[in-house]
Amino acid sequence: MFKAIIYVTLKEGVLDPQGEAVKKSLHVLNYEGVDEVRIGKFIEVWLKSQDEETARRELEDMSDKLLANPVIEDYRVELMEVV
């Protein structure tokens, strides 16, 4: 069994209205050093797969198809074997 963590983030240059709002809020809280905030998604997936390489391929496939939208988002997969 594998456990994957998939980080889905907005591509560089794509405006993040949520991140902007949170940044303003942090400034209001006097965290004036905050330069930028970007918000993304954190997805956990547990899957059965014959080996790590297959699991990674499947996860990339799922990310391309459904978990991320390649027009606006990038993703990164972290994979670990679990019992």
Binding site: V14, L15, D16, P17, Q18, A21, N69, V71, I72
Partner: peptide, 10 residues
Amino acid sequence: PGAMLRNRSL
């Protein structure tokens, strides 16, 4: 083509 983002005002 393209994608939708959250409204600017949220």
